[in-house]
Amino acid sequence: MRILGIESSCDETGIAIYDDEKGLLAHQLYSQVKLHADYGGVVPELASRDHVRKTLPLITAALKEANCTPEDLDGIAYTAGPGLVGALLVGSSIARALSFGWKIPAVAVHHMEGHLLAPMLDEPRPEFPFVALLVSGGHTLLVKVAGIGEYQILGESIDDAAGEAFDKTAKLLGLDYPGGPLLAKLAEQGTPKRFIFPRPMTDRPGLDFSFSGLKTFAANTIRSEGDDLQTKADIAHAFQTAVIDTLAIKCKRALKETGIKRLVIAGGVSANCYLREQFAKIMQGMQGEVFYPRTEFCTDNGAMIAYAGMQRLKAKQYADLDSKVRPRWSIEELPPLK
């Protein structure tokens, strides 16, 4: 079976074709970073318009890359939520129209399930059950995963997501958009322990996160300590260390509480090199395993939507013609595979 995947939840237009026997056949991605850079963040209306311009040409390019035609496809998967409503509607409308025209079923995919299953695109694949840490610009979730569609949220951010806090702190440091990767690069030049930032909500029971106060702490430090390059690097180092330590403390707590020794980390922040170094040490000490998506599949992409959609397609969990997008959508609401 072959499926076309369409990702349009925010500021990346991702198209992919996945074959359940041969694996990923095509992967096309267009990033809107330059479009939004002047505004210091994503402008929803501009994002939607750009998806309109890019989606069909990328589908054509993916079909050519995979050396196949619409007649070779068995289904179309699209991101139905969560995300920006206008951007989601573009992908959904195109997917539903092609589904109707090509007479193949469409599958509505949960964006975070796409991230959660992204490590399955490569070998070795994590076996169920596992604990998943999903960290991106819009979400920070700890999820117990018993199987596809069998999700229990263990903890989540009560304010800013980890990736959002990275981007906002980077902006305070005067870095360009998107700032998260630039902050991580700047942190490499930082002096360890010159500044010590708090590890929010780690001094109490529970698995929820909070990064808004950490961002405020960084803002106050920037104002009081000046803005020379080395000081900025030291602040970036302290901030990044605090975020990763907080994620690590919560993950260790979740693994101990569940008794599970497999951890999946996915989402844009999972590409962070310091995060991967720290979690390699942590999981080795716990005699466990940690799995990540390939770096190019950490951020939003069509491949993860195609893979997640294939699982739902095989279970015949099709979307109705009048199905709606869901800007807010709990991953716990997804049905298990039949």
Rank of each mutant, 00 (worst) to 15 (best):
L172F: 03
A80E: 02
L35F: 04
E45F: 10
I153R: 15
T79W: 05
C273D: 13
N272V: 06
V90T: 03
I305C: 05
V243M: 03
W329T: 02
S31L: 07
S99H: 00
D11R: 07
G206W: 11
A161W: 07
D122H: 11
I196C: 01
R276A: 02
R49D: 04
I158N: 11
A187E: 09
N272G: 08
G174P: 00
K64F: 10
E225L: 08
P181W: 07
F166I: 03
V269R: 02
V243S: 04
V145R: 03
A308M: 09
E225A: 15
A280Y: 04
D320W: 00
V145H: 05
P129D: 11
L46E: 08
L121G: 02
E257V: 08
G138T: 05
K316E: 14
T231M: 09
Y39M: 12
D176C: 00
T55G: 08
R276K: 08
Y78V: 00
I148M: 13
V145N: 06
D245A: 10
I17V: 14
Y274D: 15
G267A: 09
K314W: 04
H111N: 10
L4Q: 10
P119H: 05
K215T: 02
G213F: 06
T169N: 11
E127A: 15
K54E: 13
G288Y: 06
T246C: 03
A238M: 12
G174T: 02
L173Q: 01
I260Q: 07
G174W: 01
S93I: 03
A37Y: 06
A87Q: 02
T299R: 08
Y78M: 10
K34N: 13
A184K: 00
S99G: 15
G149S: 09
K144S: 13
V243K: 00
V143A: 11
G267K: 06
H111Q: 12
V107T: 02
P119K: 01
I153H: 09
V143C: 10
Q311C: 12
A238G: 15
A238Y: 11
P70F: 10
A132Y: 02
L255H: 06
Y30K: 11
R262P: 02
F297H: 15
G114P: 03
S330N: 14
R204Q: 15
D20T: 11
